[in-house]
Design a protein around this nucleic acid. Structure first.
Length: 111
DNA sequence: GAGCTGACATAGT
DNA sequence: GACTATGCCAGCT
C-alpha cells in the first residue's frame, strides 16, 4: 500500500513536530510509536526524504545513544547542535547531555 | 536486475 | 556490561 508509506511519513512529521522544546526523542521511539518497530532506519529516511525538512525539528531526533548521527544531513553539520543548544539542550561531543532526562517518548507523553 | 550502503535497534555471545 | 552479528526498508551504483 503506497498510502501506508505516505501515512508513515506524515506520522513521523507529526510526532517530530509535537516534540516539546528542550526535549529529544529517538528514532526507535518514533518507530515503535508508529508500530514499525525494527525499522527505525525508515524513520531516518522519512526525515531525509521529508520535503518540509526545515519545517520540522529534526534536530530533536537522535539515535538511542543520544548521538547526533544525522547532523551530517543538516544544512550544516553544526546546525543540529546549534539549534539544540538554543533550545536549552546541552550537546557535547555530538551527544545530548542527560539524554535520559531529555528523552521524550511519544508513546508515553503523547498518548 | 542485483548488490551495497545507510539518520538504528534488538538479541545473542 | 560491552561487543558482534543480524534484521528492517528504501535509495543509489
Amino acid at each position: 500500500m503506497k498510502a501506508e508509506k505516505e501515512n508513515f511519513f506524515q506520522n513521523v512529521y507529526e510526532v517530530v513536530k509535537l516534540i516539546p522544546e528542550g526535549r529529544v526523542t529517538s528514532y526507535g521511539a518514533i518507530a515503535a510509536y508508529l508500530g514499525t518497530k525494527g525499522s527505525a532506519r525508515m524513520v531516518g529516511w522519512a526525515l531525509i526524504s521529508s520535503q518540509p525538512f526545515a519545517a520540522i525539528p529534526a534536530h530533536r531526533v537522535v539515535n538511542r545513544n543520544g548521538q547526533l548521527t544525522g547532523k551530517q544531513h543538516f544544512e550544516h553539520p553544526d546546525a543540529m547542535q546549534e539549534r539544540l543548544e538554543q533550545e536549552g539542550v546541552q550537546v557535547q561531543n555530538d551527544q545530548v547531555v542527560d539524554f535520559k532526562k531529555r528523552f521524550w517518548d511519544p508513546a508515553t507523553e503523547l498518548l
